[in-house]
Amino acid sequence: MTEILSQYGLLLLVGQFPDGPIGGLALTLLMSVAALLLAFPVAVAVAIARTSPIPAIRRAAAFYVTAVRGIPLLLIIFWAFFVLPLVTGVTSSPEITVICALVVYEGAYLGEAIRAALEALPKGQTDASRSLGMSYTATLRKVILPQALFNCLPSMMNQFVLIVKNTSLAYIIGAQEVTFSANSINAQLLTRPFEVYFILAAIYFILCYSLSRLSRVVENRVLRKRSRVTNQPITETPSLARVPS
């Protein structure tokens, strides 16, 4: 196993870089970060649409979320890779395709996480700021979103772990991320799949496990901050202190 690592370690880490396109674990991370950053605004928009006062917008957002939840991610990737270029005439690399598919996918899932955080805020917050004369958008932007987004930091990190794992599907359409690297190592060694897949599983495990531990730390911070915020009024007006989580 060590000689596989010493001979192919660099291929697993960065692919052909710097002589060729970047690949391996580095590409996995790049794709994941890009997908998270691009999915974030989509998800916020979806969350706001899902809680919008206008029924038509709520229904459209619900349709989008339900459709994405009902289709395997692999199928979304195939649509983006094989069908969209035929319809639109625009084609892109497997890496970009997977990032786009993940944005569509995470827009729904992350959107639901943000929506849950939005709905978990006490209704009084909206009522109070609206009665102070703030507009709907100002209420969202200055009162609701900052709190909701802070509260759902842990679930965002969990979604990031999911994104990292989901980038493994990119190998099916030929993006040279770490699963693809493992397969090309198998192509050269031929007879040692267990070791190769073990190394691959270990790489993902170390990465995702550390990220989930980190998200637990963040979760505790968020909980502590929230309880501090809510603990203050408890002494004065206990009836207002309960924050459903």
């Binding site: 291929l11 052909q16 002589d19 090309s184």
Partner: peptide, 17 residues
């Protein structure tokens, strides 16, 4: 191809195609 020996693949030493 990037994964088909010997038509188009990554050379493990140079890692180029």
């Amino acid at each position: 191809f990037g994964d088909l020996v010997p038509l188009g693949y990554q050379d493990p030493k140079t890692r180029s195609i």
